[in-house]
Design a protein around this nucleic acid. Structure first.
Lengths: 185, 185
DNA sequence: AATAATAGTATCGACTCGAAACATTATTAT
DNA sequence: ATAATAATGTTTCGAGTCGATACTATTATT
């Protein structure tokens, strides 16, 4: 088997397994993807639109997935205050509990059984691969807020940081989350 | 973001992208998975049952996928000679042409744009990860026939090799393919 | 010969997915 | 201001996935 073919085989089979683990606790893989995202996105990013970009899906599909998650009681929708078109998403308590018991935990446990150096190699390789793919597709990275070029740190404890793009204050917690607008410095 | 969470994020997002690339040329990801498999499986493995195990799906799902692939003219079914329950699968010429233009080619091209050592690191990491997962799930590896403990090599050119498990002769081409029964030596 | 195991198919309901049409609400150009 | 345009979501459609379950036909076992 030649190298490129092997790479495709590994990738497609691995993806299959990951996807398969997403059939868990009565949810579907796509629903887990959404919950996982919402558990980590900052307030500028908890919208159907941002989720759509993150998951590389279409608006319609995401709308459906969010509908069923809302019906199941894991996600709550509220209207955005500033923009009446926009919808603000939030995990309910049930949704947050679910996020803590991620369907991919078994995968994670499996990794933690490997030698520490292999764990590192694997994580690093995945990161390189993902970033290369995102770049080649022109996708947004959705990195951590406080690693963004628009992030303005405030060193006085208690007072908030600041996003220079959206002109909005940022508490510590929010600035640790992922953001649609994040652009590496 | 802690390490385990990062790993899950990388893995799930990467899988999403891989899956997404499978919506190509009018086929679905699962259909590509089937075609990719059939293009590489030896004659003992070109059956709905083996494909089911390989993809980690259920019989019913695979039956459906194969039905639509047959309807589209990419797969042909014939009855097995020895076992009248069994179905032998084969890619049609159209199916083989499709396999040569795999939906994941863009991903492969992207990899080939990376430095050679990174390509290697990434492939190796994927392999480790996949094997660890297969092991932890108790899945079969589907390795290359001639790396199997039951493979008996014949060094006289022209005469076939042999599978000591299934008691069947193996030509060079078949012994280079993947097999359900493969067990590392 | 009866029973169990195996290989597949058929059917169901919930869901995904892209595509396209459709509101609403914001933004921009005139 | 107001009209054109862009952006945010929703709805609907058809094809397909997926697990679960029930079912058929064939082969193996007892």
């Amino acid at each position: 088997m030649n190298k490129p073919q092997q790479f495709i085989n590994l990738l497609s089979r691995l993806s299959r397994l990951v996807n398969h683990d997403g059939h868990s606790k009565g949810l579907k893989p796509a629903q887990w993807d959404a919950i996982r995202y919402l558990a980590q996105a900052n307030r500028f990013s908890r919208s159907p639109g941002a989720l759509t970009i993150y998951l590389g899906a279409t608006k319609g599909t995401i709308s459906q997935t969010l509908m069923t998650l809302e019906k199941k009681g894991f996600v709550a929708k509220t209207q955005d205050l500033h923009d009446k078109r926009a919808v603000a998403l939030k995990l309910t308590t049930a949704g947050e509990n679910l996020a803590k018991e991620d369907a991919l935990k078994p995968f994670q446990r499996m990794l933690s059984d490997l030698p520490a150096n292999e764990q590192n190699d694997i994580t690093l390789a995945l990161e390189k691969l993902l970033l290369a793919k995102l770049r080649s597709d022109g996708n947004k990275p959705f990195g951590i807020c406080n690693t963004c070029r628009h992030f303005r740190k405030n060193n006085q404890s208690g007072s908030p940081h600041f996003c220079d793009l959206l002109k909005e204050p940022l508490c510590d917690i929010e600035s640790e989350k992922i953001c649609v607008e994040q652009t590496p410095a």
